[in-house]
Write a protein that binds this DNA or RNA. Sequence first.
RNA 1: GAGGCUGUAGCUCAGCUGGUAGAGCAUCUGCCUUUUAAGCAGGUGGCCGAUGGUUCGAAUCCAUCCAGCCUCACCA
Length: 510
Amino acid sequence: MADNQQQEKKLYQQEVNELLKRRREELEHLKQSGVDPYGYEYDVTDYSASIKNEFEDDAPPKRYRVAGRVMSMRKMGKASFMHIQDQEGRIQLYLRKDALNETYDRIKLLDIGDIIGVEGEVFRTKMGEISIKAESVEVLAKSLRPLPVVKERTTEDGTVVRYDPFSDKELRYRQRYVDMIVNPDVREVFKKRAQLIKFIRDYLDDQGYLEVETPALQPVYGGAAARPFVTHHNALNLKLYLRIADELYLKRLIVGGFDGVYEIAKDFRNEGMDRNHNPEFTMLELYVAYKDYKWMMDFVERMTADLVHHIHSTFTISIGEHTVDFKPPWKRLTMFDAIQEYTGIDISELDEAALRKAAQELGLELEPSAGSGKIIDEIFSELVEPKLIQPTIIMDYPVSMSPLAKPHRSKPGLVERFEVIVNGQELCNAFSELNDPVEQRARFEEQMKLRERGDDEAHVLDEDYLRALEYGMPPAAGLGIGIDRLTMVITNQESIRDVLLFPQMRPEGK
RNA sequence: GAGGCUGUAGCUCAGCUGGUAGAGCAUCUGCCUUUUAAGCAGGUGGCCGAUGGUUCGAAUCCAUCCAGCCUCACCA
């Protein structure tokens, strides 16, 4: 009921708004003058930037057919200029009454935001701008809503100044389509994101790894410490969870005989949202049989460096205020050595009580329930991680933080796990996979105890996964890379929302 | 979850210690056949996020709510 009232109110306001009303009237005028304001097709043969690139002042003028959105208009009586925007950028149109005749009168009914198709010869204006002299103009889509008008001026040194940019973040995310029209840089980020994913896919395919798809709806969720989304399947009358990770399914495939598998897929975690977290996000996971985490370090270092070079043609890129060099080899430190280097304290021989004391002396506040693994993690992420700007491999983590990783072959209490830290943030997580089913069961049971004590992010015991391990899984190295965060690093964006086309928002309800 | 900031015309923003709203761009009407943040002249346009309260009087003060941003906490 209240919704209906709001709807009516909204419709009423819409009708009252003179800008919307006027455009609807123009739409009618167009129809009455015999023009279909929503065309069926247009044979686009040329694009703005290409036309400008191949223009030669002395050559005979060439004809082009372009289509795009009207972004600016300067009407001057019997002649007009406008810019249209296509996928490559903008190009100026020159429209004359004597060339277009009655079509020219219909230009009065065009607005910024309309999509048109234009054919004509290219020339350079007195002011020096390469432009198309329109010989025909077709309306392909009439725009009924006023677009934010962003005027641009190119200064003498070639920089583009933009006036009144469409900058309200909320509106930009909610109406990404408008954002993309008006802020062309946005499209560049998503092109780079696509290039990045394609590069990784090609890279892994070339190494002979198989891309697979595993269930997003899972009766038992696992592979990470997180709370899941819950849903229900009617036909099976079954509670299902949206996956929080692919890990346990991909390792079943290693058991099944694929020696290298990967998946690029959405994971879902029912947790808070901030500049680094969206409830759904894209994860790459890769598992390679007969390899260990040392091998994986070399692999991820090479792949990431090649990726950066592929996108930027250099290993050195700007991230925020920093310049980051991805050229291998990267610095490698054990977690204990990293803590010693950045805090001056050697924690390798400390027991839980001593660790707690050390952490408190470093100014950290700890939950009384925190065990030694948690304390170490706390020291690291508070005091070390933010200082690691250049790509750094941190290895050998406490076992309690990593229930799916294999025990370290020579350091008791640790596992063979590493993370890559860039710009103070985790970029990937990898380890030698635990393939001992007896120990895996014990680790799961530890997690279940945590769960009973109220840790609702502890791992859930997966009986079928244990059964798979009991058949025997070869030693394997596994890797997880958050594609969104990788994109943030590569495109120099500070919020995950800027690398997601449609980030999660609360409903508008206006 | 805690604190801070923000919400005024389609867009970007002004509105001091309360007296029922203003600019630029967009839009409308004229004039203008190489303009470019086109120009000149004149207009239209607002339930000041929502709901209550204080007051003779609220965009302005107070409370609650909604939405967004930032910081912290939680979290990979």
